[in-house]
Amino acid sequence: MQSIDLLSPALPASIGNIQAAATRIRRHSLQMTHAAGLGHPGGDFSAADILATLYLSILRIDPAAPNWPDRDRFILSKGHCSGALYATFAEVGLLPPEALATYMKPLSMLNGHPDRNKVPGVEANTGPLGHGLPIGVGCAKAAKILGRDWRTFVLTGDGELQEGSNWEAAMAGAQFGLDNLTVIVDRNGLQQGARTEATVALEPLADRWKAFGWNVREVNGHDIGALLDVFQSIPFAKGMPNCVIANTIKGRGVSFMENRAEWHHHVPTDAELQAALAELTEAAQ
């Protein structure tokens, strides 16, 4: 990818710096999708602010020692949004920026869905939906068994919650009292082909999580300050797992991508890429 921007050096995690990182994550992931001819830009963009907030300010990780035993665990259950994850990894030094240009190229470490055996910092191989939360329950339970204080965060899509395995895990997480576990739902309202509510409805989503024994907070998933406030107040209650419903917009940040189901896995044309990058450049200024 010839046109990839140079990354800024690591900066203190002010709201402004996190916003700037989120904009770069959008730019890079869209360039990656364009270059690869494959990707999931709509979901990359709805998750970008959440990923930037977590990785720049919340997660206790050491990019120089990605397997540090007491690190916080982050699991991208919506593994198809690997473009945003890899771009985030480049922001924090888990990936060399130049690796992004190899996204989905032959023999690249950057598979279309993340592979923990190829990319240090990836905690779980995801792609099939409904795998992340059960693994997250296991990571959080392991911390309880071992008496360690690492925390576990799982980012799911919203359409993904149609997979029953999530609700098996939700029951177990509450039964085990995993207040060290947080699920973040990227509630952009759209799945691959249509609105979630027109496919198999998820509402009343907050009430469902509450009924399963989780302590629920709703937040604007594009408001960095609000995301920081919510994540910094974890655990919300002792002995209960945490659910953050992040209300987001699929394709957020580019006018012609926002709230359009087709951008789930639409690959931008050259003109669309340039127009999108122009909007994102403007937003960053």
């Binding site: 035993p69 665990r73 905690e123 779980a124 409904g130 795998h131 939360l133 059960p134 693994i135 997250g136 329950v137 296991g138 990571c139 959080a140 339970k141 392991a142 911390a143 068994i145 071992l146 360690r148 690492w150 576990t152 029953g164 395995s165 098996e168 895990a169 029951m171 177990a172 039964q175």
Partner: peptide, 18 residues
């Protein structure tokens, strides 16, 4: 409980934790 998909996923997470 009676939830095999979750069981194997939870085991994966336990192994991730060492």
């Amino acid at each position: 409980g009676i939830a095999e998909q979750n069981m194997v996923g939870v085991a994966t997470g336990l192994a991730n934790g060492g």
